[in-house]
Design a protein around this nucleic acid. Structure first.
Lengths: 108, 108
DNA sequence: CCCCATATGTGGCGATGCCACATATTGGTG
DNA sequence: CACCAATATGTGGCATCGCCACATATGGGG
């Protein structure tokens, strides 16, 4: 059951949301996205890790090596204050945008 | 009041929808998208015309020069049967996708 | 012992939409 | 007349993004 491709631009929003209640690592973030969307949204590694690095470079996430629940080393990402602001911005943009598309699709 | 950028991949859906009730030309399609979304979605020429050509090459739209409402020559695009099928497919994909994002954003 | 799940990463690639610009015509206004 | 706005289509260059395919490493269970 492969979900279709992501609409380009939504990945950052999903990642920021994924870490909004506490630090998490890449693999867990990808799993969370896949599970909360019932496999509709599936993030590929080749998209996930570059996106995390990008968000870190932008100062929206901070990274730190920790031990995961399974006892392994994993790179944990934490939402920075700027990241939290960005989450609000992107969320608003998504909601405005999706409402607009819905309106267009609903028009006679 | 510039609307923010489109999420990549939504343009085809909007165009197909725009011509779903009858032939229209590029300029009118762009205006319709802008107007029905209250300037939230604004399609640039550099995105619009290549997209129309693309859809025509794919056999989803057919083109024909006609006289527009203002008495000028304009290239009218008509939805082909395959285009209509594609509209249903893309619409379904959009709805499934946006519901999935909404679920992710709503999660605790 | 081997495979699977966990965990991170890269290189190459195609597609898409943006920006900036070019062109042509028509109609209205100063 | 001169000019500008709206109508109408188009291109080239560009950056970004996500996909595919692959590589690497480790820990646990059968």
């Amino acid at each position: 059951m492969p979900g279709s491709d992501l609409y380009t631009g939504t990945l950052d929003l999903l990642i920021l949301k994924a870490v909004s209640w506490g630090p998490s690592h890449g693999y867990a973030i990808a799993r969370w996205i896949r599970e909360t969307t019932s496999d509709v949204l599936v993030v590929q590694e080749g998209a996930l890790y570059p996106a995390l690095h990008r968000l870190e470079r932008k100062g929206l996430l901070s990274e730190e090596w920790r031990e995961s629940e399974t006892g392994r080393q994993a790179k944990y990402y934490t939402l920075t204050p700027r990241g939290r602001t960005q989450l609000r911005v992107e969320r608003k943009r998504w909601e405005e945008h999706s409402r607009a598309v819905a309106r267009a699709l609903a028009s006679a």
